[in-house]
Amino acid sequence: MAQAHAAAADKYYIPHSSPWPIIGSASLFVLMFGVIAYLNEWLPLWVMLPGFALLIFMFVGWFSTVIGESQKGMYNLSVDRSFRMGMIWFIFSEVMFFAAFFGALFYARSLAVPWLGGEGTKIFTHALNWPSFENAWPTNGPANVGPRADGSFEIIPAFGLPAINTLILLTSGVTVTIAHHALRAGHRVMLNTFLFLTVALGFLFVYLQGVEYHHAYTELGLKLSTGIYGSTFFMLTGFHGFHVTLGAIMLLVIWFRTMRGHMTPERHFAFEATAWYWHFVDVVWLGLFIFVYWV
């Protein structure tokens, strides 16, 4: 049915009005106010729930509207192109968000920690402020900031769970590509199978990441508060894990849609956008594996 109408959409579709954006803004406000009230210890944690629920409601509503319009064939190729460009630049902005944290990691490793250890131009920093500190990585700083009384901590070796996780994500990148080819070739069963595999691998990654965090928190003395190593480690892997979760949910939605027969070999922006997002999450992980876990 989608194809039948597509020809009619010779004009660039402009929605006449929509309640979703303002519901979205309001939900962000309520959610953030909830978080603020919690952080300021004004109210307990559950105050973020209403905002969160409203946000989910908004996403469901907004995307349902868009999917409905798309299925009715209201979007011509130009609209499709707008969506694609929009998604690409959105992903680019996400890349820059991660860049801030990678920047912090590189700055700490190659400037701040060496300076505190007396290298470069800051010998007095070391001599007068932190005479017993040595430049090394990983570190939780000259004051050995961390949960254990003696300030020690252990790190997660790269070639354990993280390497397995790398394999999982790389494989999921392959499966989503196979699904894409299947979609373009019209092999719906293969599409559904490989898409499902991708979703499963995504959630498996998140699960293993959870196992790793649990291990770090309960046994290694490695927490968010374990000096600069803990800070950069958890912020980078944490935001990444959050993005994987989002990506996996997106893939799941796409899977439900392909199961219902959405997406055609020619027109499947939603699928592609999600796949791009997935690849982005994948590439970020490679950066993490190399710079956070390995070298």
Partner: peptide
């Protein structure tokens, strides 16, 4: 107590100097 800690810029600081860390 702080006197011995001082060294010239050309010399590398000796780690046995005495001040306590100032930030915590």
């Amino acid at each position: 107590e702080i006197a011995p800690a001082i060294v010239d810029a050309e010399q590398v600081a000796t780690p046995n100097s005495v001040t306590t860390p100032t930030a915590g």
